[in-house]
Design a protein around this nucleic acid. Structure first.
Lengths: 159, 159
DNA sequence: GTACTTTTACTCGGATACCGTCTGTCCGAGTAATTATGG
DNA sequence: CCATAATTACTCGGACAGACGGTATCCGAGTAAAAGTAC
């Protein structure tokens, strides 16, 4: 059981977009190049982020992706849901009900526990926003790294 | 991303074993019959529980499985680790390092968050024991269900 | 210079292929209780 | 009746097949800016 790497790609893509000046955009091609991930697959992910309302996209030449919401409002959990869907980590397979020949409507024992655990998990992902990640990045990175990124962005930025 | 159903099978198997009198055993065949799951696959899971030290097994005719630890000491997290391994839910794929051309030794931003989230998740699974599930089962089930199970166990119990 | 057409560089969304993992099956081997056999 | 052998019913562990989902690729379609063209 593993969490998809798609989440990682999406989060860091958003983190890059967050460094752009207001209303500026970056093409999917540029994003994938900087993240060193598959271009076509990243585009698939970006579409999911668009559908989730986290970023907006502009077609045509001089098009690209741009952060739609403010970074303070983008929870990591939102990104997770956008990429992986709302399905919970655990889903009962009815062993409990089969065991006791119960109706399907009652929740099973394990589900309750797993649901509680997942809630605890989600709460961490909900209180962590893109803004806090951005902050952490600025605090922990050397100026050299950041300026290198920002100058690269400047070359590739659209509009 | 989903948690294996193997966990469900294992937990309820343990819950069944917990209803046996001291030192009594149940065969893998009987377990799978009551849980309505694949017999051979359940045996695979039981072996993992044996290797994890949660249950002990006795080969030969009149053999079977028996709870090794006391139910108060068996955390659901132990079962999870036995079935799914110690691997964490999230494992970085190095996007962060590729992005900034950093050395591998530094942890990436997302890893920190995901690790914290997983910790919260684990803590719920650690404070839930087989004993507490057993308790919950006794409290929420009708007497009819429980006596039906226990009489069935009496028929199939070994030793 | 203006209106129109073509080219270009993007996003969009579906179809598809690959591959690892989880589920499930099968088989031979080991083990111990039970049963059968021989003296 | 006792000792030994054969049978039986389990667990053990590996090899293997099938299904499913995540990763990745490709393609045609849509869109809009830029470039080219005609008058």
């Amino acid at each position: 059981m593993k969490i998809k790497t798609g989440l990682e790609q999406a989060v860091y893509a958003l983190l890059l977009l967050n460094r752009l000046p207001k209303h500026a955009m970056l093409s999917g091609e540029s994003l994938s190049e900087k993240l060193h991930v598959s271009s076509t697959y990243l585009q698939k992910l970006m579409r999911k982020l668009v559908q989730a309302g986290l970023v907006s996209s502009v077609p045509g030449v001089k098009g690209g992706f741009r952060l739609l919401a403010t970074p303070e409002d983008i929870q990591i959990y939102d990104v997770y849901v956008a990429v992986e869907g709302v399905e919970s980590l655990y889903h009962s397979n009815g062993v409990f009900h089969a065991m006791f020949q119960l109706a399907e409507n009652k929740t099973c024992l394990l589900s309750d526990v797993m649901e509680e655990a997942e809630h605890a998990w989600q709460s961490v992902l909900k209180r962590t926003t893109l803004a806090s990640l951005h902050q952490a990045l600025n605090n922990t990175s050397t100026n050299d790294c950041l300026t290198k990124i920002d100058s690269w962005l400047k070359e590739r930025v659209v509009l």
